[in-house]
Design a binder for these strands. Sequence first.
DNA 1: CCCACTAGTATCGACTCGAAACTATTAAGC
DNA 2: GCTTAATAGTTTCGAGTCGATACTAGTGGG
Lengths: 198, 198
Amino acid sequence: MSAASLDCQDRVARLLDQLTRLARGLQFADGLNPAQWDCLRFISRANAHSRTPGAIATFLGTTKGTASQTIIALEGKGFVRREKDPCDRRICRLVITDAGKTKLENDPLRCVRHAAERLPHGTAEMLADGLEQLVCDLRIRHGCHEFGVCNKCGHFIGSGDKAKATCGLLQESIPQTETNRICVSFKKREPAVELGSD
Amino acid sequence: MSAASLDCQDRVARLLDQLTRLARGLQFADGLNPAQWDCLRFISRANAHSRTPGAIATFLGTTKGTASQTIIALEGKGFVRREKDPCDRRICRLVITDAGKTKLENDPLRCVRHAAERLPHGTAEMLADGLEQLVCDLRIRHGCHEFGVCNKCGHFIGSGDKAKATCGLLQESIPQTETNRICVSFKKREPAVELGSD
DNA sequence: CCCACTAGTATCGACTCGAAACTATTAAGC
DNA sequence: GCTTAATAGTTTCGAGTCGATACTAGTGGG
């Protein structure tokens, strides 16, 4: 409410503005552009169900047409490969090539992580908490979907046997290598309620 | 160093990634795109010396050609006007029109500020401090210039009489309305040193 | 078998992006 | 004063984003 506190909220907004510009600038690197880096990065972190053009469009907040174009560009540069799904031939699975994996090792956004590592002890925690609140607030107010990994998802059915995880939505078992990957169908897990009033 | 602390640095990086995407998405609004909003926003905050195509390119980290194109788009939409400098006819001064001012009142990034205002007491301060360190680190490592306002600039020569501020670089007096505006020629003010060893 | 639905692609026009070539205009050297 | 260099902007190019719209192909229900 005070002038000083108003000032600091302004600082947050302007620093984020700077950071956004900085991060964007960094991503015009190595022959790719920000959209292509975003796409490549997502494919590398997504579960099998989400490594498709449609899922990429949903995650990146764009349209299927745009996503398709970006994929074509990445394919042309040899960083991504298309594979038809044998079960449902409408679906196109995206696979990162070896060249793509090598490329990702030089992800220009890696330096943001390194900068976070150089922050003093405790600062990174506070920063992460503050950012989380900010992101959460913005997401709610702008109706943006939240994405998360399988093993924290409301559809995840885990058993004592770690090797036998299942997705309640797709009715499919989830390989252990996939449980820690991002899914476009992520649903926030409800806190266990005993007395629900529908 | 621990796994937990590694996790939180990862959180910072990913939250910033999300925030960047969110902010970018918000800026495809109202008939403008992110580059155009950035440009309009900068012109409204820059001092007279910096309201030129070249300065915009420097500040936004792009080329003069690209900045020129963005200005043409804004001019076509009636938010910006060009004026030839009478002293140096190479220079083109940019002026925001009334329509441009109205437009800026609905700046989509305003909501980031509002989100910051809704943070609990103290969180915004910590967030701003953490972000500042991060931005500073990234700027140094990537050779990006820092921009600031006249009255905090190393070239600023203020006197007891507030109305008589001067810019040591341009050898020009600075009107009072301009002292709080961004300048592309900003130079970090050296802490007063008495015994300098050159 | 038809029809609705879904996944993805193709095409359009407006625009960004960097790079490079270009036009004015000013300043500096002789 | 005249040439030359530097500066401020613009133009043009090709690749690519972006949303919108129309399209193809495969799936599944009635």
